[in-house]
């Protein structure tokens, strides 16, 4: 095992993770293509993963990585379902535009 991470390094990784997360968020909020939106959520998963591993390394134990495994399972499950939904939605409206689905309104 390499030497445990220093505080400074940890800050760096957190910076990267934060930036990636925010970029994913902005992507989710701005892109109107359903698939890309889900892709952005995957990116957010990714950002979270970096933070996990960084903290794992900082504390020198493998819990961060174990947790990443679980994140991956969730990401996989989410991706599978999300894509199935997108396909179904595409079949209904043959468009991927998120704007077309807005019946649930007050």
């Amino acid at each position: 095992m390499t030497a445990p991470l220093s505080m400074l390094a940890l800050n760096h990784y957190l910076l990267v993770s934060g930036v990636l997360f925010v970029i994913g968020l902005i992507g989710f909020l701005t892109r109107r293509n359903l698939i890309i939106m889900f892709l952005c959520t995957e990116l957010m998963f990714q950002a979270a993963a970096i933070a996990m591993i960084a903290f794992g390394a900082y504390y020198g134990n493998a819990q961060g990585q174990v947790f990443l495994i679980f994140i991956l399972t969730i990401a996989a499950a989410e991706a599978a379902l999300a894509l199935a939904l997108v396909v179904a939605l595409y079949r209904r409206r043959s468009t991927l535009d998120a704007e077309s689905w807005s019946e649930l309104q007050g």
Binding site: L25, D97, E99
Partner: peptide
Amino acid sequence: DYDATAREPVAATVIG
């Protein structure tokens, strides 16, 4: 069209 333009870019960026 829906791929080319971002939706409310300013608000999203600011909040992000």
